[in-house]
Design a protein around this nucleic acid. Structure first.
Lengths: 121, 121
DNA sequence: GAAATATGTGAGCAGTTGTTCATATGCTAG
DNA sequence: CTAGCATATGAACAACTGCTCACATATTTC
Protein backbone atom coordinates (compact mmCIF):
# COMPACT_ATOMS: atom_id res chain seq x y z
CA UNK A 1 0.00 0.00 0.00
CA UNK A 2 1.35 3.35 -1.05
CA UNK A 3 -0.23 6.33 0.60
CA UNK A 4 0.40 9.81 -0.68
CA UNK A 5 -0.51 13.10 0.89
CA UNK A 6 -3.01 14.05 -1.79
CA UNK A 7 -4.67 10.67 -1.90
CA UNK A 8 -8.15 10.53 -0.47
CA UNK A 9 -9.35 9.39 2.77
CA UNK A 10 -8.28 6.72 5.09
CA UNK A 11 -5.66 7.45 7.67
CA UNK A 12 -5.61 11.10 6.81
CA UNK A 13 -3.12 13.58 8.14
CA UNK A 14 -4.31 16.21 10.58
CA UNK A 15 -1.96 18.89 11.70
CA UNK A 16 -1.64 19.83 15.35
CA UNK A 17 0.66 22.68 16.21
CA UNK A 18 1.69 22.63 19.82
CA UNK A 19 5.37 22.41 20.47
CA UNK A 20 8.64 23.89 21.57
CA UNK A 21 11.01 22.17 19.21
CA UNK A 22 8.69 23.05 16.38
CA UNK A 23 10.00 26.59 16.72
CA UNK A 24 13.62 25.67 16.20
CA UNK A 25 12.80 23.43 13.25
CA UNK A 26 9.59 25.07 12.11
CA UNK A 27 7.94 23.81 8.97
CA UNK A 28 9.64 21.41 6.66
CA UNK A 29 13.39 21.70 6.35
CA UNK A 30 14.94 21.98 2.89
CA UNK A 31 15.98 18.69 1.29
CA UNK A 32 19.51 20.03 1.10
CA UNK A 33 19.62 20.69 4.85
CA UNK A 34 18.14 17.29 5.71
CA UNK A 35 20.65 15.53 3.48
CA UNK A 36 23.52 17.42 5.02
CA UNK A 37 22.20 16.75 8.51
CA UNK A 38 22.07 13.04 7.72
CA UNK A 39 25.66 13.16 6.49
CA UNK A 40 26.66 14.94 9.68
CA UNK A 41 25.04 12.33 11.90
CA UNK A 42 26.62 9.64 9.72
CA UNK A 43 30.03 11.04 10.52
CA UNK A 44 29.14 11.07 14.21
CA UNK A 45 28.03 7.44 13.95
CA UNK A 46 31.34 5.75 14.63
CA UNK A 47 32.88 4.84 17.99
CA UNK A 48 36.33 5.70 16.67
CA UNK A 49 35.28 9.15 15.49
CA UNK A 50 33.41 9.75 18.74
CA UNK A 51 36.57 8.90 20.65
CA UNK A 52 38.47 11.38 18.52
CA UNK A 53 35.91 14.10 19.17
CA UNK A 54 35.80 13.28 22.86
CA UNK A 55 39.59 13.60 22.99
CA UNK A 56 39.27 16.99 21.34
CA UNK A 57 36.76 18.32 23.86
CA UNK A 58 38.47 21.34 25.34
CA UNK A 59 41.89 21.07 23.74
CA UNK A 60 43.93 20.83 20.60
CA UNK A 61 45.68 17.59 19.71
CA UNK A 62 47.93 16.48 16.87
CA UNK A 63 47.10 13.55 14.60
CA UNK A 64 49.42 11.02 16.18
CA UNK A 65 48.12 11.79 19.68
CA UNK A 66 44.60 11.27 18.37
CA UNK A 67 45.67 7.95 16.89
CA UNK A 68 47.02 6.88 20.27
CA UNK A 69 43.95 8.07 22.19
CA UNK A 70 41.45 6.56 19.75
CA UNK A 71 43.44 3.35 19.54
CA UNK A 72 43.69 3.13 15.77
CA UNK A 73 46.36 3.69 13.12
CA UNK A 74 47.47 7.12 12.03
CA UNK A 75 46.15 6.42 8.56
CA UNK A 76 42.71 5.59 9.88
CA UNK A 77 42.64 8.75 11.99
CA UNK A 78 43.68 10.85 9.02
CA UNK A 79 40.82 9.44 6.95
CA UNK A 80 38.39 10.13 9.78
CA UNK A 81 39.67 13.68 10.25
CA UNK A 82 39.29 14.40 6.54
CA UNK A 83 35.67 13.32 6.74
CA UNK A 84 35.06 15.35 9.88
CA UNK A 85 36.70 18.40 8.31
CA UNK A 86 34.41 18.11 5.32
CA UNK A 87 31.37 18.46 7.59
CA UNK A 88 32.98 21.07 9.79
CA UNK A 89 33.02 18.94 12.90
CA UNK A 90 36.69 19.74 13.39
CA UNK A 91 39.15 22.30 12.12
CA UNK A 92 42.89 22.37 12.32
CA UNK A 93 45.91 24.57 12.30
CA UNK A 94 49.17 23.61 10.68
CA UNK A 95 52.38 24.29 12.56
CA UNK A 96 55.45 23.17 10.65
CA UNK A 97 54.83 19.48 10.00
CA UNK A 98 52.30 19.03 12.78
CA UNK A 99 48.55 19.47 12.39
CA UNK A 100 46.62 20.45 15.50
CA UNK A 101 42.94 19.64 15.46
CA UNK A 102 40.11 21.02 17.57
CA UNK A 103 36.30 20.92 17.57
CA UNK A 104 34.94 23.31 14.99
CA UNK A 105 32.24 25.03 17.04
CA UNK A 106 30.02 24.75 20.11
CA UNK A 107 27.34 22.74 18.34
CA UNK A 108 29.60 19.72 18.27
CA UNK A 109 30.02 19.72 22.03
CA UNK A 110 26.27 20.11 22.50
CA UNK A 111 25.55 17.22 20.15
CA UNK A 112 27.97 14.95 21.98
CA UNK A 113 26.80 15.95 25.45
CA UNK A 114 23.10 15.68 24.56
CA UNK A 115 23.62 12.34 22.87
CA UNK A 116 25.52 11.00 25.84
CA UNK A 117 22.80 12.16 28.22
CA UNK A 118 20.25 10.35 26.11
CA UNK A 119 22.06 7.02 25.96
CA UNK A 120 22.82 7.16 29.68
CA UNK A 121 19.34 7.87 30.95
CA UNK B 1 53.64 3.85 12.27
CA UNK B 2 51.70 2.66 15.26
CA UNK B 3 51.80 4.93 18.27
CA UNK B 4 50.50 3.79 21.59
CA UNK B 5 49.93 5.78 24.74
CA UNK B 6 52.63 4.02 26.71
CA UNK B 7 55.18 4.15 23.92
CA UNK B 8 58.04 6.51 24.50
CA UNK B 9 58.66 9.87 23.24
CA UNK B 10 57.88 11.65 20.09
CA UNK B 11 54.57 13.38 19.68
CA UNK B 12 53.69 12.83 23.30
CA UNK B 13 50.32 13.59 24.81
CA UNK B 14 50.02 16.48 27.21
CA UNK B 15 46.77 17.05 28.98
CA UNK B 16 45.26 20.50 29.19
CA UNK B 17 42.07 20.88 31.18
CA UNK B 18 40.20 24.00 30.27
CA UNK B 19 36.71 23.58 28.97
CA UNK B 20 32.99 23.84 29.25
CA UNK B 21 31.89 20.77 27.39
CA UNK B 22 34.46 18.81 29.32
CA UNK B 23 32.08 19.05 32.26
CA UNK B 24 29.16 17.43 30.50
CA UNK B 25 31.36 14.69 29.12
CA UNK B 26 34.09 14.70 31.71
CA UNK B 27 36.81 12.11 31.49
CA UNK B 28 36.58 9.19 29.16
CA UNK B 29 33.14 7.80 28.51
CA UNK B 30 32.53 4.09 28.97
CA UNK B 31 32.97 1.95 25.86
CA UNK B 32 29.39 0.84 26.23
CA UNK B 33 28.11 4.42 26.18
CA UNK B 34 30.25 5.38 23.20
CA UNK B 35 29.06 2.35 21.25
CA UNK B 36 25.46 3.13 22.04
CA UNK B 37 25.97 6.78 21.15
CA UNK B 38 27.41 5.74 17.79
CA UNK B 39 24.38 3.51 17.18
CA UNK B 40 22.11 6.39 18.06
CA UNK B 41 23.79 8.74 15.61
CA UNK B 42 23.71 5.96 13.04
CA UNK B 43 19.95 5.83 13.35
CA UNK B 44 19.81 9.60 12.96
CA UNK B 45 21.98 9.36 9.85
CA UNK B 46 19.26 8.86 7.26
CA UNK B 47 17.25 11.51 5.41
CA UNK B 48 14.18 9.27 5.55
CA UNK B 49 14.42 8.79 9.30
CA UNK B 50 15.10 12.49 9.81
CA UNK B 51 11.94 13.30 7.84
CA UNK B 52 10.02 10.93 10.07
CA UNK B 53 11.39 12.56 13.22
CA UNK B 54 10.77 16.02 11.82
CA UNK B 55 7.18 15.04 11.11
CA UNK B 56 6.87 13.89 14.71
CA UNK B 57 8.14 17.14 16.19
CA UNK B 58 5.29 18.31 18.37
CA UNK B 59 2.64 15.74 17.48
CA UNK B 60 1.67 12.13 17.27
CA UNK B 61 1.25 10.46 13.89
CA UNK B 62 0.26 6.99 12.73
CA UNK B 63 2.49 4.82 10.56
CA UNK B 64 0.70 5.39 7.29
CA UNK B 65 0.76 9.16 7.75
CA UNK B 66 4.48 8.92 8.39
CA UNK B 67 4.87 6.89 5.22
CA UNK B 68 3.07 9.59 3.27
CA UNK B 69 5.04 12.45 4.86
CA UNK B 70 8.41 10.73 4.49
CA UNK B 71 7.61 9.63 0.96
CA UNK B 72 8.44 5.96 1.35
CA UNK B 73 6.52 2.69 1.64
CA UNK B 74 4.72 1.60 4.79
CA UNK B 75 7.08 -1.33 5.08
CA UNK B 76 10.15 0.87 4.98
CA UNK B 77 8.71 3.22 7.60
CA UNK B 78 7.90 0.29 9.84
CA UNK B 79 11.47 -0.96 9.64
CA UNK B 80 12.77 2.52 10.42
CA UNK B 81 10.41 2.93 13.37
CA UNK B 82 11.48 -0.39 14.80
CA UNK B 83 15.08 0.75 14.71
CA UNK B 84 14.23 4.11 16.23
CA UNK B 85 12.21 2.42 18.96
CA UNK B 86 15.18 0.22 19.82
CA UNK B 87 17.28 3.31 20.55
CA UNK B 88 14.44 5.17 22.24
CA UNK B 89 14.24 7.90 19.64
CA UNK B 90 10.50 7.35 19.35
CA UNK B 91 7.82 5.64 21.35
CA UNK B 92 4.29 4.71 20.43
CA UNK B 93 0.87 3.98 21.74
CA UNK B 94 -1.40 1.38 20.25
CA UNK B 95 -5.05 2.27 19.71
CA UNK B 96 -7.05 -0.54 18.17
CA UNK B 97 -5.17 -1.31 14.96
CA UNK B 98 -3.44 2.03 14.70
CA UNK B 99 -0.03 2.82 16.17
CA UNK B 100 0.62 6.44 17.08
CA UNK B 101 4.26 7.44 17.28
CA UNK B 102 5.89 10.41 18.98
CA UNK B 103 9.42 11.54 19.86
CA UNK B 104 10.62 9.71 22.94
CA UNK B 105 12.05 12.64 24.92
CA UNK B 106 13.37 16.18 24.71
CA UNK B 107 16.91 15.12 23.80
CA UNK B 108 15.75 14.10 20.35
CA UNK B 109 14.40 17.55 19.59
CA UNK B 110 17.59 19.15 20.86
CA UNK B 111 19.73 16.88 18.70
CA UNK B 112 17.71 17.69 15.60
CA UNK B 113 17.60 21.41 16.28
CA UNK B 114 21.29 21.66 17.12
CA UNK B 115 22.25 19.59 14.10
CA UNK B 116 20.12 21.73 11.81
CA UNK B 117 21.66 24.90 13.23
CA UNK B 118 25.08 23.50 12.52
CA UNK B 119 24.45 22.52 8.92
CA UNK B 120 22.75 25.83 8.21
CA UNK B 121 25.39 28.15 9.58
C1' DG C 1 70.96 16.41 -0.92
C1' DA C 2 69.48 12.27 2.02
C1' DA C 3 67.16 10.40 5.93
C1' DA C 4 63.60 10.80 9.20
C1' DT C 5 59.12 12.34 10.76
C1' DA C 6 54.08 13.87 10.49
C1' DT C 7 50.35 13.76 7.83
C1' DG C 8 47.35 12.86 3.64
C1' DT C 9 45.29 9.77 0.18
C1' DG C 10 43.87 5.94 -3.28
C1' DA C 11 42.65 1.13 -3.73
C1' DG C 12 40.56 -2.78 -2.13
C1' DC C 13 38.23 -6.06 0.86
C1' DA C 14 34.95 -7.64 4.64
C1' DG C 15 31.09 -6.29 7.00
C1' DT C 16 26.88 -3.36 7.24
C1' DT C 17 22.71 -0.61 5.63
C1' DG C 18 18.17 0.71 3.05
C1' DT C 19 15.05 -0.64 0.31
C1' DT C 20 11.51 -3.83 -1.79
C1' DC C 21 8.71 -8.00 -1.94
C1' DA C 22 6.19 -11.33 0.21
C1' DT C 23 3.90 -12.65 4.04
C1' DA C 24 2.33 -12.65 8.97
C1' DT C 25 -0.37 -10.72 12.85
C1' DG C 26 -4.14 -8.38 14.86
C1' DC C 27 -8.12 -5.62 14.97
C1' DT C 28 -12.74 -4.27 12.96
C1' DA C 29 -16.74 -4.28 10.18
C1' DG C 30 -20.24 -6.68 7.94
C1' DC D 1 -16.57 -16.35 10.12
C1' DT D 2 -14.73 -13.64 6.25
C1' DA D 3 -12.93 -9.63 4.14
C1' DG D 4 -10.26 -5.68 4.59
C1' DC D 5 -7.12 -2.56 6.61
C1' DA D 6 -2.94 -1.02 9.69
C1' DT D 7 1.19 -2.54 11.06
C1' DA D 8 5.24 -5.75 11.65
C1' DT D 9 8.84 -8.66 9.97
C1' DG D 10 12.08 -11.99 7.31
C1' DA D 11 14.76 -12.55 3.18
C1' DA D 12 17.55 -10.81 -0.24
C1' DC D 13 20.17 -7.72 -3.02
C1' DA D 14 22.64 -3.32 -4.37
C1' DA D 15 25.04 0.31 -2.29
C1' DC D 16 27.97 2.01 1.25
C1' DT D 17 31.41 2.09 5.39
C1' DG D 18 35.87 1.30 8.07
C1' DC D 19 39.85 -0.60 8.14
C1' DT D 20 44.65 -1.71 6.31
C1' DC D 21 48.32 -1.41 3.02
C1' DA D 22 51.09 1.06 0.03
C1' DC D 23 52.61 5.23 -1.26
C1' DA D 24 52.64 10.46 -1.80
C1' DT D 25 53.69 15.05 0.16
C1' DA D 26 55.87 18.25 3.04
C1' DT D 27 58.97 19.77 6.59
C1' DT D 28 62.99 19.37 9.49
C1' DT D 29 67.64 17.81 10.57
C1' DC D 30 72.05 16.34 9.56
Amino acid sequence: MTHTLTEDGLCEVDLVDEDVVRDAMSGRAADQDVDRLAETFQVLASPTRLRILEALAGRELCVCDLAALAGVSQSAVSHHLRMMRALRLVRYRKESRMAYYRLDDDHIGVLLATGLEHVRE
